[in-house]
Design a protein around this nucleic acid. Structure first.
Length: 569
RNA sequence: GAUCUCGUAGCUCAGCUGGUAGAGCAAUACACUUUUAAUGUAUGGGCCCUGGGUUCGAAUCCCAGCGGGAUCACCA
């Protein structure tokens, strides 16, 4: 007897045994061939048509010698009507009386054969003439019900349980499934958009010796035979640019990146960024490309360009607004950053009550001004352009102003969604910028970058003018599916590992020759192993065991002290 | 890491200023051959997160811990 089973689980395990006793395999091996599914039945309804479908049994409504149930397959819900005479035309009514009425439970997988009809209440249903158990469910799913007004009762809402047991969440909450279907549609729409333009999808290393292309704390691991530290990538940017050096006109990758930093509702340790690099283009071209791409994605995945996000409606209809960073800061602070020194910028930040420590360089100060004072105002998709050079070590200097770079970020709903450059392809400038980063790092800027010398070498062989763009796939999916947290758009978001509940060490008791009924008693008293048991007094245990025997009316002889003394030896 | 907040039946949740637990659904049994949150009758089911403390008495109050959520910090 397993003490950890709930009464309902015990019932289901007993049903399992009874099915076997009736000669029914609750987990048959052979293929079950279906001819239809819930969606198709409703789309091409034809009275009297013979169908075979399979799915999970939900919400049985048995009434005597007939009953209704809902069958859920991957396409949706179809109602079953089962009556005894149709299911069991012969003398033997056990398939109906035993199996359908008592041995099938909410959540079981069944295959069903029958004819289509419409009930009195107008619902398309299958009149079942054959039924096969395909898999028994041993744990009860949460019972979520929706009433006539569409109101959901007893919803399965606990975020912890939903994320830890996403399989249950998906079964019971249709909206969750919908989010993930949309996620795949969004990704496919992007991929198709790029492929149609002739760009090449590529794979680059996840395991890297230098975690380059961004500044973030990496996950560190170790390669045994090389005996060197390796890092899970924080970005793939430098590898894609190497491929542009190698002669590809356009490359892109959906890159799973890893950052060893805090987790909250917009950050998960692993997340997905789509990066694309196109030769002979600049950031102006990339802005047009990005807005067209997003409009295309919205149309493909959602069928429209207007997206409801909470109270707001976001419009992904191209073109998007474009504002320079200088103008943005001027607009929301009245302060013109043009030509200002580091001290002047710091003074302005302090005046506005912003954190502006001595370790912040000019670029970082401007970033602070923008991040704190402006960013939140850009709800509709807006390109913010021309970032200060210190903030963008991989970006080409602005063609008209060497203090700025040809960079844009796409802000949506007050948050960064995409980031793009006219890529820096001057190897000498790039080397100097990396060296500045190194000195920033020494000053204590923990966001400065490592230097990748092989990347510099590749630039020395010549990289054509190139524009690159990265877009946060998880955040895009959040926006397009109206979800406020990243956990809702990742199947298996990172969670603290579940604490293992220490089960009883039954083997240690059995090894001592303790009888099964006493083991149950000992475990129920909270002694999970023989060692724990030995911490108590044999006489006290003797009393407790016999009390337990009396209370539970055990049909066994009373425990003898001598016997118990043996367990302690 | 800081602050706030939550942890009661398989699920969703009640349980007031302290008196050792309740509902609906699910389960079990019976009735019911077109129901749809099916219905009716009956039954079973709880280390009230863990450990301390206050108290005659703690699910309830206090402290600590564990786990979750929110906000902030961190995170281009």
């Amino acid at each position: 007897m397993n003490l950890n089973l709930s009464p309902e689980e015990i019932v289901r395990r007993e049903a399992l045994a009874k099915l076997r006793a009736l000669g029914i395999d609750p987990f048959p091996a052979e293929e079950f061939i279906t001819t239809s599914n819930a969606e198709e039945i409703k789309a091409n309804y034809e009275e009297g048509k013979q169908v075979i479908v399979a799915g999970r049994l939900m919400n049985q409504r048995i009434q005597g010698k007939a009953g209704f149930a809902d069958l859920f397959d991957s396409t949706g819900r179809i109602q079953l009507y089962v009556n005894q005479d149709a299911l069991c035309p012969g003398e033997d009514k056990s398939l109906y009386q035993d199996v359908v009425r008592h041995l099938l439970h909410y959540g079981d997988f069944v295959g069903v054969e029958g004819t289509l009809f419409t009930t009195k209440l107008g619902e398309i249903s299958i009149h079942v003439s054959g039924l096969k158990v395909l898999a028994k469910s041993l744990k009860p799913l949460p019972m979520v019900k929706t009433d006539a007004d569409g109101k959901v009762h007893d919803a399965f809402t606990d975020p912890e349980l939903r994320y830890r047991m996403r399989y249950v969440d998906l079964v019971v909450n249709p909206k969750v499934k919908d989010t993930f279907v949309k996620r795949t549609k969004i990704v496919n729409a992007m991929r198709n958009f790029f492929n149609d333009k002739g760009y090449l999808e590529v794979d680059t290393p996840v395991l890297q010796a230098i975690p380059g292309g961004a500044s973030a704390r990496p996950f560190i691991t170790h390669h045994n035979s090389l005996d060197i530290p390796m890092y899970l990538r924080i970005a793939n940017e430098l590898y894609l640019k190497r491929l542009i050096v190698g002669g590809f006109d356009g490359v892109y990758e959906f890159s799973r990146n890893f950052r060893n930093e805090g987790m909250d509702r917009t950050h998960n340790p692993e997340f997905t960024v789509m990066e694309i690099y196109v030769a002979y283009k600049d950031y102006n071209w990339m802005m047009n490309f990005t807005e067209q791409m997003l409009e295309h994605v919205a149309m493909e995945a959602l069928g429209k360009t207007e997206v409801q996000f909470g109270e707001k409606t976001l419009s992904f209809k191209a073109p998007f607004a474009r504002v320079t960073m200088t103008d943005a800061i001027k607009e929301y602070t009245g302060f013109d950053i043009t030509g200002k020194s580091e001290d002047e910028l710091r003074a302005k930040c302090l005046e506005l009550g912003l954190d502006a420590g001595e370790n912040l360089g000019k670029g970082k100060l401007i970033d602070t001004l923008f991040g704190e004072m402006c960013e939140k105002h850009y709800i509709q998709p807006t390109f913010i352009t021309d970032y200060p050079v210190e903030m963008s070590p991989l970006c080409k200097r602005h063609r008209e102003n060497p203090e700025l770079t040809e960079r844009f970020e796409l802000m949506v709903n007050g948050k960064e969604l995409a980031n793009a450059y006219s890529e820096l392809n001057d190897p000498i400038d790039q080397r100097e910028r990396f060296e500045e980063q190194a000195s920033l790092m020494e000053r204590g800027d923990d966001e400065a970058m490592f230097i990748d010398y092989d990347f510099l070498r590749s630039l020395e062989y010549g990289m054509p003018p190139t524009s690159g763009m990265g877009i946060g796939v998880d955040r895009l999916v959040m926006m397009m599916t109206n979800n406020e947290s990243i956990q809702e758009v990742l199947f298996f978001p990172q969670m603290r590992p579940e604490k293992k509940q220490e089960g009883p060490d039954v083997a240690s008791f059995e090894a001592k020759g303790i009888e099964a009924h006493w083991i149950d008693a000992i475990v129920s008293m909270g002694f999970l192993s023989l060692d724990k048991l030995k911490e108590t007094k044999p006489t006290a245990l003797h009393q407790n065991l016999n009390q337990y025997r009396k209370k539970n009316k055990l049909d066994v002889p009373a425990a003898q002290l001598e016997e118990i003394m043996m367990w302690f030896s």
